[in-house]
């Protein structure tokens, strides 16, 4: 069965955020299924739905994101999609 996770990126808007984040995903062979992005009072908010094969990969992905988080001063989190489904869907 397809397993999906939500990647959320929050931080100050600047050049290259999308490119850097998506590069990490591509390097980890993860397919982006949906992407949405807004700017709220200077704050960049991007939410992506990605396809993951197994959760072991997430550790590696988190490590890679850690680097960009520090470089661009962002907060990136990854959460399995189930948690949103169970909170918002009956």
């Amino acid at each position: 069965m397809q397993k999906r996770a939500v990647v959320s990126v929050l931080g100050k808007d600047q050049v290259g955020i999308i490119s850097k984040v998506t590069t990490v995903l591509a390097n980890n062979h993860m397919n982006i299924l949906d992407i949405s992005q807004t700017i709220l009072q200077d704050f960049f908010t991007m939410i992506m739905l990605i396809d993951i094969k197994d959760t072991a990969d997430l550790d590696h992905l988190m490590k890679d994101f850690k680097v960009i988080e520090e470089e661009l001063d962002l907060t990136i989190s990854i959460q399995l999609e189930d948690v949103f489904k169970s909170m918002h869907r009956v």
Binding site: V6, S8, L10, D34, S36, T45, I47, S77, Q79, E81, V83, F84, K85, M87, H88, R89
Partner: peptide
């Protein structure tokens, strides 16, 4: 049913 953007934001 897909989860909406606003709902994801709410959880975060």
């Amino acid at each position: 049913m897909a989860v909406a953007f606003t709902e994801i934001q709410e959880t975060i």
